[in-house]
Write a protein that binds this DNA or RNA. Sequence first.
DNA 1: ACCTGAACACCGTTCAAGT
DNA 2: ACCTGAACACCGTTCAAGT
Lengths: 233, 233
Amino acid sequence: MTKKAATGAARAPRRKDSLSRERIIRAATEMLDSGGERALTLRALTVRLGTGYGAIYHHVADKGDLLAAAADDVITGVLSGVVADADPRAALRRLALDLFDAVDAHPWVGAELSRRPWRPALLDFYESIGRLLDALGVPEEARFDAAGTLVNHVLGVAAQNAANARLLADARDTDRESFLEDAATRWAQVDPERYPFVHAAATRLGEHDDREQFAFGVDVVLAGIAALGRARR
Amino acid sequence: MTKKAATGAARAPRRKDSLSRERIIRAATEMLDSGGERALTLRALTVRLGTGYGAIYHHVADKGDLLAAAADDVITGVLSGVVADADPRAALRRLALDLFDAVDAHPWVGAELSRRPWRPALLDFYESIGRLLDALGVPEEARFDAAGTLVNHVLGVAAQNAANARLLADARDTDRESFLEDAATRWAQVDPERYPFVHAAATRLGEHDDREQFAFGVDVVLAGIAALGRARR
DNA sequence: ACCTGAACACCGTTCAAGT
DNA sequence: ACCTGAACACCGTTCAAGT
């Protein structure tokens, strides 16, 4: 892993298209964004980069490493854009929504998030949540559990987002329309006598907005944390 | 390998070990329980059942169908065991915890749950949640969002459970101890100056109980739903 | 050091052929 | 109808060999 500085020739000009870990990760990210998780194969990557397998494995440990690194980049980008906010509740909401938007734009990141929730790239996310809960007045003993619940809400929606994207990708493009229609009508056909709630929910599916539902969930969790803090002890 | 059933004899006695969809699903479930998702391969299944691929594909559409059916069985088992409860809050808590326990015992069900949250096997689960929220006095307009948040909490924890199991399974058995230790110590080494909250959380990881954390989350969500219902509109 | 690409060890799935 | 098992079309990964 040791790198020698330029030997002999002073400053050997680096070809601007030379292979590098970053270039590989960037290519992988683009493939994931445009074709979903399924589209990223080592074979396709060699074609896209015009190299062989060994070249890639020279810069990257394995496919898991590549996926994790690509997700790290997206997450770091989101978290570095976070602005301080006077109101901790608003800051928490914004933090959660920023992450939601990133996962919505890159569903494969959602899968990676739930696959490896302990990546260093998420450190700042967890730390921010802890501090903001503190600022919100959540007592010390409840703070860890509260943070866990909040994190689970975010990761849960992220995972669901990824799963939905996977299901949609599996339906071949020609089927996609009918696939969505089928799902909607099948749910609307649930027996209203036996399953009144599910039936009613299904008929309202059109008005449903995932982002709003997510934001509502954040509010629910924050309100619940506040309420429990007041009620207990 | 070929066994001839008694030919000629009237009422060929069905061999009690004859292949059937149920037998296949049962075998798959056992393999998933003992070896994790990774252990269920078509090859291993043919060996275990003493048949060929075609025999399996004759009773089952594909691997996804098999996985879904196996998960359905577990879920149906849990939901059919649900007892009516006078207090809707207690009933919701119990429903959630029953599902948690099932996923804890069969982590691969957690993965399947987040892969296909719209399986008919979950109908009763969703319907119960809707009715119990009604019984709890959650107003009609908020009920769908509230149910969504609650469901997301359950599915989120389920997915996380499955992801953890996968990570553990990937660490080879000999590594497993050191793998867990490594993870714990690595997190304890997080810079306490820069990440005081995460550092504190890591040092308390030992006292952490996943089931309690989950139950706490359910309480948070329920309290939040109640609080928001009171505050708005 | 960096890269090539044939080869390996797996997957899930199909299908002509058997009974 | 039910089953067999060779064959197919993929995977991710390795590694002797090149520069």
